[in-house]
Amino acid sequence: MEEIAGNELAIEKREQAMLELADFDEVVRVYRPRILRFLLSSLTDRDAAESLTQECFLKAWSARHQFRGDSSLSTWLTRIAVNLMRDHLRSRSLRFWQKTRGSALDVMDISDWVPDGRSSPESLALARQRVATVWQAVEKLSAQQRTVFVLRFVEEMELDEIASTIGMNLSTVKSHLYRALGIIRERMGEAK
């Protein structure tokens, strides 16, 4: 009985995803901020993130007939974005001079913004310092560790969803996340 209900739910979800994909303008409007955020957090480069976001939706449009609805639309788009980012990082390793890119996201861009409601200037400064420390630690992570970290702690995805998105075992995802958190924790300890 439960199995039948589960199957019906899966079919319903699939149909919903297919229906959602039919209005592609709406898909771009809804999911663009999320894809851009993931790429911006991972690449820390505005231009690269924007270009890859556009490319991601272009690819999704081209491959929309191949979408079977096995995963959610969000997961499917994130998977495309992850693959594009991998290719980008592979090609970027040859163009090392792009390190001095003008569109790089700076730590000041990030740490300048801290939610309101801080009681004192001291606590505000402390919060900014914490954000800056995490930012610097994330920059030190390997590409895979960073991808897993961003998907978990910025996009708030579940671990099994991350595993299916980036095509890794659940245990490998956990291992990357554990190491990433270890590095960040260590960095925070040093910053104190």
Partner: peptide, 29 residues
Amino acid sequence: RDLAEALSLYRSAMHHVADREAARPFVPA
């Protein structure tokens, strides 16, 4: 607790920055 708070702040900051970037028209450098 510090780590959890730092991660939460980082997430909020990234969401804010990404929203700001998404609102901006794309001009290639």
